[in-house]
Design a protein around this nucleic acid. Sequence first.
DNA 1: AAACCAAAAAATATTGAAGATTTTGGTATT
DNA 2: AATACCAAAATCTTCAATATTTTTTGGTTT
Lengths: 222, 222
Amino acid sequence: MFGFKNDDAATVVQFIAEHVRRDISFGVLPPDSRLKIEDLRQRYGGSAHSFREALTLLANEGIVEASSQRGFRVASASQADLEDVTRLRAEIEGLGLKWSMKHGAVRWEGELIAARHAVDRADRMVMDDIDALALEWDEANREFHAVLVSRCNSPRLIEFQSRLFFESRRFRFAVLKERAIEPERLKDMRNRLVDAVLARNDQQATEALERLILEPFGAPGN
Amino acid sequence: MFGFKNDDAATVVQFIAEHVRRDISFGVLPPDSRLKIEDLRQRYGGSAHSFREALTLLANEGIVEASSQRGFRVASASQADLEDVTRLRAEIEGLGLKWSMKHGAVRWEGELIAARHAVDRADRMVMDDIDALALEWDEANREFHAVLVSRCNSPRLIEFQSRLFFESRRFRFAVLKERAIEPERLKDMRNRLVDAVLARNDQQATEALERLILEPFGAPGN
DNA sequence: AAACCAAAAAATATTGAAGATTTTGGTATT
DNA sequence: AATACCAAAATCTTCAATATTTTTTGGTTT
């Protein structure tokens, strides 16, 4: 019936998890709100078991909190969380970039330049219709940062990076909704980053990356 | 009735997950072996659903692999995995240690010294009866490395560290079973590490930590 | 009025059984 | 030997029921 023979998200649990994950990122399900299984079923479909499984999974990812015998709720999103996630993201991603710069060749550089192009474009366009383009915008961002670490040769680092990126999504959308994105500034920082990568300058690259990650959130702690 | 309402995860799923996690670490369930739910139920008890949930969780942690429609199996443990885990552990733990050295005070130093004492002792004793003392030995190790990062002020880093430590357990036990532990050498390295920490010397500390983590596995890549 | 206890109500956790779908392994055919 | 096909096995998903825990409610005592 369905043509999905891929190993990707072919199971109901993963389908649900993906959906809930996205709705949490977008703020449709706000922080600290309770996730009553019965309510969710009516919204997303699926059986109670599938939901438990999916929520257990999301709890393990950190965007849902589970307390024993008391059900699930969306993880809180405090200032401390924001700082923790972004700081750690800067470190992990910086490390992955450093390693990628050792192994990545011309092909990688091409992917990087293409991803930069896409994300620059998304930055410029997203303001026109935030609701419609937000997902696309974030996907371009995800792709760019994924390429940065893609050649690091460490599957676990890639997974951590991806997880932290998802966790920071909520905060990123909050910034976007305040229209606090500065396309030109971001483009500048990305150019400096890519230049440093192409020149294989480790230190400049990690510094540029750190600024790119931290600055949109107001560089807390100055 | 008040008192015992700890967050202690008294749910069946977590109980099963904990058990299976341990058996995988110990090699009771060897890498790549299939995890048939029916078989496991007879061994651990619990319902099929609880098992699915637990295994989904372990799959998310990385020590179990799930392929859609084809069940679960213990994650393979290749040389590449060993290198990935240990390398990443050295980096993450090093970062956490650096941050801990900023915030940790006298109390922390005390915990560190106590943990070092315990793990030195465990190293000396474990050879006498490996099967009986292995768990205790590894717990002392876990505690020591947990203390190192305990003051880093980043819950997510602590969680990553803990996860990587569990993932590396399998390899650590393999080394132990080959009786390839050198208590005196390890004690030396730990002393150098703790000395550097007390002196608040970032670079020496991270270098010592890196050696402590990588060396027991034969320092691959020379 | 505040604190306390017990029973009722609500929600969650767990299990069992059964139907649907997919993979696997064997057999017959070409 | 390769392919097509069928049956058995395993997994995935849902429905339904029971057990356990938390929360609420209402009445009693201090």
